[in-house]
Amino acid sequence: MAAGGDHGSPDSYRSPLASRYASPEMCFVFSDRYKFRTWRQLWLWLAEAEQTLGLPITDEQIQEMKSNLENIDFKMAAEEEKRLRHDVMAHVHTFGHCCPKAAGIIHLGATSCYVGDNTDLIILRNALDLLLPKLARVISRLADFAKERASLPTLGFTHFQPAQLTTVGKRCCLWIQDLCMDLQNLKRVRDDLRFRGVKGTTGTQASFLQLFEGDDHKVEQLDKMVTEKAGFKRAFIITGQTYTRKVDIEVLSVLASLGASVHKICTDIRLLANLKEMEEPFEKQQIGSSAMPYKRNPMRSERCCSLARHLMTLVMDPLQTASVQWFERTLDDSANRRICLAEAFLTADTILNTLQNISEGLVVYPKVIERRIRQELPFMATENIIMAMVKAGGSRQDCHEKIRVLSQQAASVVKQEGGDNDLIERIQVDAYFSPIHSQLDHLLDPSSFTGRASQQVQRFLEEEVYPLLKPYESVMKVKAELCL
């Protein structure tokens, strides 16, 4: 049975990233139509530049190519590739079939990587351009969430054990800070992308030097003109047959890092959902379990974690691919890159769409948070109580021993009897502590235990987050809708 299948058929496997999760716009960027249309555009740009620099290419040939950029006979191309065992030459023939007058000058002087690699770089750039505003929107939604809850005390956790208090907004800023680093890295790697350009079979530009009869300047002009037509500021000066596969490492490393950030955020949300302090959106008709109707599973956060793990592992592909590119190139890269580049971007696209949807509907339960604080705060307040007693004339050592005994009794009630923490009640009825009984409410005010959390939130948002989001103001209103 021949390899390949009808990918629109229910009898043929289709990647869930495309069929179930990723956005239509990201799927289109990695589609065959987008790819092969870009090949034709690159052939047109090459012909236009070659004509401008004096090669015998007519206006009629150029116009014929322009008129057929979208006229792609995919069936013919597939048949040609089956016959020739070469995808680029299959599309040269297919393009030439609908451009008979231009057929002889299509791909003039070029090698397969002229269309293959340059198209990949265009796709990487455009895919990054799709991700950047999506990530900015996630940051914006979380920034709104953090600002609104900047002063809401909550129990902090280290080692997932109760620690000092923080605020809900401050905790959210930990998430935002990681995503801001990801946004900066995505922008950097996007701006650092260079075009492969017009380089020939081993990167020496020998074929173009021959076409222009040894004119170095025209060869350099050709490279520059096509690079500018493709919208790049610069091209690699040095290439082998391909652009260095280190570029793929750079791009997928940034995406993998984004995956790590999203995994951490969504894990926190899942843990908070278990504590009943916070939940992701839950639709009115949504079913959490087929057997347990009360369940409210954090399905979206779980999906993000599941896909983020996949995204983090994909960076190993370009690392290994770059390491086995012998001399000017081997074909070890080809099949692998067809999979890992598309999957990385479709996965990143999915987790950003999902995280935006989550961040637009996060639900906080202040009463649950308050109750958990009441359970733990008495123990945390013991040092403040000791200091207040010393100020009232008591002995630190005597007070410490009193607190120690009462704390152990209260802990026994919590752990052995399943009761509430009654340390404060014990202190309130103990005559030894009568000098500070009137101060206990103040000493137990949760806001006095959150330090500068709310001020940190305000400063972080104003100095770091809002300036970073400013270039994306025009796209901030787009909502994230999930079908599944």
Score class of each variant (00 low, 15 high):
Val405Ala: 12
Arg338Pro: 01
Ser301Met: 14
Pro16Leu: 15
Ala163His: 00
Lys170Tyr: 04
Asn68Ala: 06
Thr119Ala: 12
Gln408Val: 03
Thr227Val: 06
Gly116Trp: 00
Asp87His: 10
Val368Ala: 04
Phe28Asp: 06
Pro100Cys: 07
Glu81Ile: 04
Ser290Asn: 04
Glu148Phe: 13
Val364Trp: 09
Arg14Trp: 15
Arg337Phe: 01
Ile123Trp: 03
Gln210Tyr: 00
Thr158His: 02
Ile72Cys: 06
Met312Trp: 05
Leu46Tyr: 09
Val465Phe: 01
Thr119Cys: 13
Asp332Trp: 04
Tyr34Lys: 09
Val457Asn: 03
Val324Arg: 01
Leu255Arg: 03
Ile358Phe: 07
Val219Ala: 05
Lys233Phe: 11
Met278Arg: 03
Arg190Thr: 15
Val315Tyr: 08
Glu48Val: 08
Asp216Leu: 09
Asp120Lys: 15
Pro162Glu: 03
Val198Ala: 13
Lys199Thr: 07
Gly203Trp: 01
Glu277His: 12
Glu80Met: 06
Asp333Val: 01
Leu468Asn: 15
Phe327Thr: 12
Ala163Arg: 01
Leu165Val: 08
Ser306Arg: 01
Leu352Tyr: 05
Thr227Gln: 07
Lys218Ile: 06
Ile139His: 05
Lys391Leu: 06
Gln205Ser: 07
Leu314Asn: 03
Leu211Ser: 11
His437Ile: 00
Ala348Asn: 04
Met387Thr: 11
Leu252Tyr: 07
Ala150Cys: 15
Ile265Asp: 01
Val413Leu: 09
Asp420Thr: 07
Glu370Met: 08
Ala335Pro: 03
Gln51Ala: 05
Val115Tyr: 00
Ser334Asp: 04
Phe282Ile: 14
Thr347Lys: 00
Arg137Glu: 06
Arg337Pro: 00
Met181Ile: 12
Thr201Ala: 06
Leu362Met: 11
Val405Arg: 12
Leu108Glu: 03
Ala206Arg: 01
Ile238Lys: 02
Ala136Cys: 15
Val115Ser: 07
Val226Thr: 00
Leu130Ala: 15
Ala291Glu: 04
Gly5Pro: 08
Gln455Pro: 10
Arg303Ile: 09
Asp317Lys: 01
Gly104Pro: 08
Pro467Arg: 06
Arg196Asn: 07
Asn68Arg: 04
Met225Leu: 11
Asn357Leu: 07
Tyr21Trp: 15
Trp45Glu: 09
His93Phe: 08
Leu355Val: 09
Ser151Asn: 13
Val413Cys: 08
Glu279Arg: 03
Ala348Lys: 02
Tyr34Arg: 04
Arg188Gly: 09
Cys483Tyr: 06
Lys367Phe: 01
Thr94Leu: 11
Val262Lys: 06
Asp422Cys: 07
Ser334His: 14
Thr313Gln: 09
Tyr432Ile: 05
Arg296Lys: 06
Leu258Asn: 09
Glu302Met: 05
His217Glu: 14
Asp117Arg: 00
Gln320Ser: 13
Lys391Pro: 11
Asn421Phe: 05
Glu328Lys: 00
Tyr114Ala: 00
Ser112Phe: 03
Gly197Gln: 01
Leu174Lys: 07
Val168Gly: 02
Arg149Asp: 05
Pro366Phe: 02
Lys233Thr: 04
Ile57Met: 06
Gln51Lys: 06
Lys229His: 14
Arg404Ala: 12
Phe160Asn: 11
Glu462Phe: 14
Cys304Gln: 05
Ile123Ser: 13
Val262Ile: 11
Lys75Ser: 15
Arg245Asn: 02
Trp43His: 06
Glu283Ala: 15
Asp144Ala: 10
Glu383Ala: 01
Ile238Ser: 05
Arg303Gly: 05
Ala103Asp: 13
